[in-house]
Amino acid sequence: MNHINKVKEFIIENFLFGDADKIKEDTSFLESGIIDSTGILELVSFLEEAYGIIFSDEELIPENLDSLINIAQFIERKTNSGKD
């Protein structure tokens, strides 16, 4: 899951300002408050740019975005489906 590390790095640098120990693979961003309401925008833009993907409206849901593991699984699915 090298996606996880890349996203984790982005979040630590831009939302935790270096506090690496505040995030685990299954930490909910919204419940823990790591990402604020407008921060979601930055996260989505980062994912779209970094992985060359586009989120449809239906895909912008906590199940795809609310933790490192959810994101990694989503990217996995999304990039694989693109190869079909």
Binding site: L30, S37, I40, F55, L60
Partner: peptide
């Protein structure tokens, strides 16, 4: 919340 696309995520934020 000027991006309607983000509504569902933002709702989760207000559910806190």
């Amino acid at each position: 919340l000027n991006d309607p696309k983000l509504n569902i995520m933002l709702q989760s934020f207000f559910a806190h």
